[in-house]
Design a binder for these strands. Structure first.
Length: 832
RNA sequence: GACCCUGUGGCGGAAUUGGUAGACGCACCGGGCUUAAACCCCGGAGGCCUCCGGGCCGUGUGGGUUCGAAUCCCACCGGGGUCACCA
């Protein structure tokens, strides 16, 4: 008797799906049996199957939200999937624990950052364990732990020795709210990335990493990585490499002023010259002239304006210095102005203005009545006589340019550079948008910079054997414009390591991005107490095979980590030049129309959903929302569908367990009424393998298993063996998503350790149907379909197509002039 | 302003990359089970028309290429992102 008739009741004795019990049980087993521990390879051991899957580590400034859940579940699915293919996968986790968010949160709640961070880490760790992510907890690290930042300081000192870290005075971005300087990259539209306050310009002594030394390699090596194109583009734009020329213009006193230009072909069109207000000679040039006061006033005024105000000002302001420079190619004397539309930080902080061919120069010339002289024209077009801005194009020819007139623009540029070089007035060169990385912060909650200032010896490195320089425990850490560490006088006062005399410690701390620029290396050797890591350990595991994180780190973190990797490679500490071979950037989760974020107050806690549905459901739904790289909107009751699916799989598995001896068949014959179910099982293996393994299409992989389960539910006439094969395969395929449920059901069906079971393989013979349904189009419109045995001849297909009644009706004796057969798909007939 | 991504049912999304649009899920409707409800199970559904055979329309809008277009090309509109005085 068949109990699987329509409307079967759950037998009273059948156990309901109870996620809480199942999940607790397996989490306990995994921990007890150290299932997720992945030790380093022993010397000489085969390392060919080592794989490193990593998600960006969280900031412990609060608890986890659904964005984290999606991120870490994705990494976990990849990890579990690869393990089932025999890879030995390292999947570690840590906490980016230093930094402004944690410190600001602590200040707000009146607590010490160390205490608040410790509690947040405990809460996050508990949530992660509840989610059942397969993390190797032996490798856990916190960047605020002295055992970790000991080596952050050590790496800083190696970069310092190599001349890649230095202290210099520079115009820097200052956040008046956070009371600290910011890296160039942390300023968005002239505002602090963190708090949104308008950034001020200050000239201060700060620590910098010379990331600009690596500009070319950071740009060129992007070709070696497999990253999303838009991230590569963002990095390229950020580095901003421009080819051009440096040109020296002579002042009357015999000194010169240099400019960078990408358009040396327009040199004959330079009708004036502009210095940035911050240019070192701006004020001095006008000294003891009638222009002196005006220039000094203007420079002071410009300094008082924020970057936002400067950029938003529509009209171009500026003042004449009363001085002139000589154009090296034509000997022409042109006036020197000071204007704040010229940036001090780019190129040389001065430009030659070519108003006919540069929109900004054009605006300035119009505003101040300066000459506009066209020097390039469209080939074949009449020479430009109007005063107008002419856009750059490939098909241009030089005019009004002396001996260079008539040359094509690119050729003219080369010829003019050659002439400048021959005369010693300039050279071809390259400029970058990228600036050096300002790493010092006037804040408490960060890694101390291991430097001592001595009156006699100057800047002295703390010797390695005195590391770590431990962050002192102080009570008053609120920002006051100088580092709060300066108040810890006992800590500041020290001996100079070089001369033994009295000295004081550096009181700035490091930017948090320094901490996260090498953490992925530390995971390879997390307990090393004599070095940040051993070369063998990092070279065995790295580069990271799959890195997963938010696209918001497309520039900062990824650029800095790449810089560190290259610097450490040059110093011989690692054997690779790119840290992340493959990168996947996930989309954000939106809720109630806004980005899900604590600051927006629309965060859904995973805990609440785990209570209602269980961790497996939360894992499933976080990836079922949509394509993982796209932003997705969260729906409260969407998770219900995933839960119902798991509950259905649970019931079907238990029914199978009750109707057949324990055992997981490797395959069953596709015979009898259940043949279609067996075929469906194989095609589902094929689809899920392709979707998870090659496409990262975690949503459609789930859909495929839904279809299998649905068909299984309706296959009452399949044999118990066929049903067992289908349900066990569904359990196996769903294991990376819902590992707790899969472990439980796999065991109840007679299997052992599903996480060790080989990933199922589809039998190719089962993927080809023996009957195929063809669609028939007449003149491009669908008019019917027919089903034939696979492998039918073209002539038979055409005959069958014409025989379809509705097709015959539409042909209606008309002459068929074209017949198209797409094997396995359709027949298309064209008449008249 | 420049460059990139994106636009498909009531909603999230699918479509093997030029071959039967709307898989899968949510919400919805009908039926079964139940004293009743929940749970669960079976079934339905893009819109309009229909003589119930089927027909017309339909993937932001308008054109184009093709036997055939959500997919390729051109123009435009909407949404999102990145950069934005970088000379």
């Amino acid at each position: 008797m068949n109990v699987h008739v329509a409307g079967p009741r759950i037998p009273r004795m059948m156990e309901r799906y109870d996620p809480a019990a199942v999940e607790a049980r397996w989490q306990e087993i995994w921990e007890r049996e150290h299932v997720f521990d992945v030790p380093n390879p022993a010397p000489g051991e085969d390392v060919s199957r080592l794989s490193y899957v990593l998600e960006m580590l969280p900031y412990p400034s609060g608890e986890l939200h659904m964005g984290h859940v999606k991120n870490y579940t994705m990494g976990d699915v990849v990890t579990l999937y690869r393990r089932r293919h025999g890879d030995r996968v390292m999947h570690p986790m840590g906490y980016d624990a230093f930094g402004l968010p944690a410190e600001n949160a602590a200040i707000r709640s009146g607590r010490h950052p160390a205490e608040a961070t410790r509690e947040n880490i405990a809460a996050i760790r508990r949530q992660m364990k509840r989610m059942g992510w397969s993390i190797d907890w032996n490798r856990e690290l916190s960047t605020a732990d002295p055992e970790y930042y000991h080596w952050t300081q050590w790496i800083f000192l190696r970069l310092f020795e190599a001349g890649l870290a230095s202290r210099k005075s520079a115009a820097v971005k200052w956040c008046p709210n956070d009371q600290t300087v910011l890296a160039n990259e942390q300023v968005i539209d002239g505002r602090c990335e963190r708090c949104g306050a308008e950034v001020e310009a200050r000239t201060l002594e700060q620590w910098f990493f010379k990331i600009t030394d690596y500009a070319d390699r950071l740009l060129d090596d992007l070709e070696q990585v497999s990253w999303p194109e838009r991230v590569v583009t963002m990095q390229r734009n950020w580095i901003g490499r421009s080819h051009g020329a440096e040109v020296a213009f002579m002042l009357d006193d015999g000194t010169d002023l240099r400019v960078f230009t990408t358009r040396p072909d327009t040199l004959f069109g330079a009708t004036f010259f502009v210095l940035a207000p911050e240019h070192s000679r701006a004020v001095e040039l006008a000294d003891s002239s009638e222009h002196s006061q005006a220039v000094a006033d203007y420079v002071r005024h410009a300094a008082g304006r924020t970057a936002v105000e400067r950029a938003e000002a529509r009209e171009k302001t500026g003042v004449f210095t009363g001085r002139y420079v000589t154009n090296p190619v034509n000997g022409e004397r042109i006036p020197v102005w000071v204007a704040d539309y010229v940036l001090a930080e780019y190129g040389t902080g001065a430009i030659m203005a070519v108003p006919a061919h540069d929109e900004r120069d054009f605006e300035f010339a119009e505003a101040h009545g300066l000459e506009i002289r066209p020097v390039v024209a469209q080939r074949g077009a009449a020479p430009q006589t109007d005063i107008a801005y002419v856009a750059h194009s490939d098909d241009e020819v030089l005019i009004n340019s002396g001996e260079f007139s008539g040359m094509a623009a690119p050729e003219g540029a080369q010829a003019i550079i050659a002439r400048l070089e021959a005369d010693g007035h300039g050279r071809g060169t390259i400029a970058y948008r990228l600036r050096d990385w300002l790493l010092s912060r006037q804040r408490y909650w960060g890694c101390p910079i291991p430097i001592v200032h001595c009156k006699g010896c100057g800047i002295v490195a703390v010797p390695d054997d005195q590391l770590p320089v431990v962050l002192p425990d102080i009570k008053d850490f609120a920002p006051r414009g100088r580092s709060p560490l300066a108040a810890a006088e006992d800590w500041v006062r020290t001996q100079c390591p070089a001369c033994g005399g009295p000295a004081s410690r550096e009181t700035d701390t490091m930017d948090t991005f320094v901490d996260s620029s090498w953490y992925y290396m530390r995971y390879a050797d997390p307990h090393n107490s004599t070095a940040p890591f051993s070369r063998e350990a990092v070279d065995a595991w790295l580069p990271v095979d799959q890195y997963i994180g938010g696209v918001e780190h497309a520039i900062l973190h990824l650029m800095y980590a790449r810089f560190f990797t290259k610097a450490l490679y040059d110093l011989g500490y690692v054997g690779f030049t790119e840290p992340f071979a493959n990168l996947f950037t996930q989309g954000m989760i939106y809720y109630l129309g806004a980005k899900m974020a604590k600051s927006k107050g629309n965060v859904i806690s995973p805990d609440e959903l785990i209570e209602r549905f269980g961790a497996d459901t939360v894992r499933m739904y976080s990836l079922f929302l949509g394509p993982p790289e796209q932003d997705a909107e969260w729906f409260d009751n969407g998770a219900k569908g995933c839960h119902d699916f798991l509950a259905r799989l649970w019931r079907l598995a238990l029914e199978s367990a009750a109707e057949l001896e324990p055992g997981i068949p490797a395959s069953v014959p596709a015979e009898g009424p259940g043949a279609e179910l067996v075929r469906k099982t194989h095609s589902t293996i094929d689809r899920v393998t392709h979707d998870v393994g090659e496409r990262f299409a975690f949503n459609t992989a789930q859909s495929a298993v839904h279809e299998l389960v649905k068909q299984l539910q309706r296959s009452h006439d399949a044999t118990p063996q066929q049903r067992r094969f289908a349900v066990a395969t569904a359990v196996s395929l769903v294991q990376p998503y819902a590992p707790h449920l899969a472990c439980e059901l796999w065991q109840r069906l007679g299997g052992e350790r599903v996480w060790d079971a080989p990933w199922p393989v589809a039998d190719p013979a089962m993927l080809v149907a023996d009957e195929i349904t063809y669609a028939v189009q007449v003149n491009g419109k669908l008019r019917g379909e027919f089903t034939v045995a696979a492998g039918a001849e073209k002539a038979d297909l055409l005959a069958a197509a014409r025989a379809v009644p509705n097709v015959a009706h539409h042909l209606d004796g008309a002459e068929v002039v074209k017949e198209i057969v797409v094997p396995g798909k359709l027949v298309s007939l064209v008449t008249r």
